[in-house]
């Protein structure tokens, strides 16, 4: 079976670990950012905060890196988990993969539409932060459930 774009199977397990660490950083950011914060100067392509005088292109910003670490790890981890080949990657698995991907894209679009129409201000900003990773997370969950289901039926 021709499987372009898929990663080798051995990346699946490291993917789960990276994803797990990313989620821990994500919880840290939302739960304890006020008390345990790590701030560093980061190069910014563009910065726009109305209140500070540091807006514009190519600025250095003093920013908490916990959320950057969390999103980076979650994206890399979930790409490894989602797009590594299964042990036997065959045409039926590809079908399940495709169906899960379509489901995840539609579900994510509905969630984003709902957020856009109902959330304003900081709530919307927080929702868009989540939306950076929701499509991959939804796909991982849906694909895992579909695989389990396919596994279940015995002779």
């Amino acid at each position: 079976m021709n499987t372009r774009y898929l990663l080798p199977n051995y990346l699946k397990f490291p993917g789960w670990i990276i994803l797990g660490i990313g989620v821990i950083f994500g919880i840290w950011f939302f739960a304890f950012d006020e008390v345990m914060d790590i701030k560093i100067w980061m190069p910014a392509l563009h910065n726009s905060f109305p209140m500070d005088g540091n807006s514009g292109l190519f600025r250095l910003v003093y920013n908490s890196i916990i959320d950057e670490i969390a999103v980076t790890l979650i994206i890399i981890g979930s790409i490894f988990v989602a797009f590594s080949k299964e042990k036997t990657e065959d045409e039926y698995i590809m079908k399940i993969r495709l169906e899960s991907l379509v489901w995840a894209l539609i579900a994510n679009s509905v969630i984003m539409l709902f957020c856009m129409l109902t959330l304003y201000g900081m709530s919307f900003t927080i929702a868009t932060e989540f939306n950076l990773v929701t499509v991959l997370i939804l796909f991982v969950i849906k694909f895992q459930i579909a695989l389990r289901k396919a596994n279940k039926y015995e002779k």
Binding site: T88, E91, Y92, I93, K95, Y153
Partner: peptide, 19 residues
């Protein structure tokens, strides 16, 4: 035939049409 057992099972249940 070098596929997963799930594929054979899905075909027997009529849930999957093979290539």
């Amino acid at each position: 035939v070098k596929v997963s057992r799930q594929t054979i099972n899905a075909m027997e249940l009529g849930k999957y049409v093979p290539s």
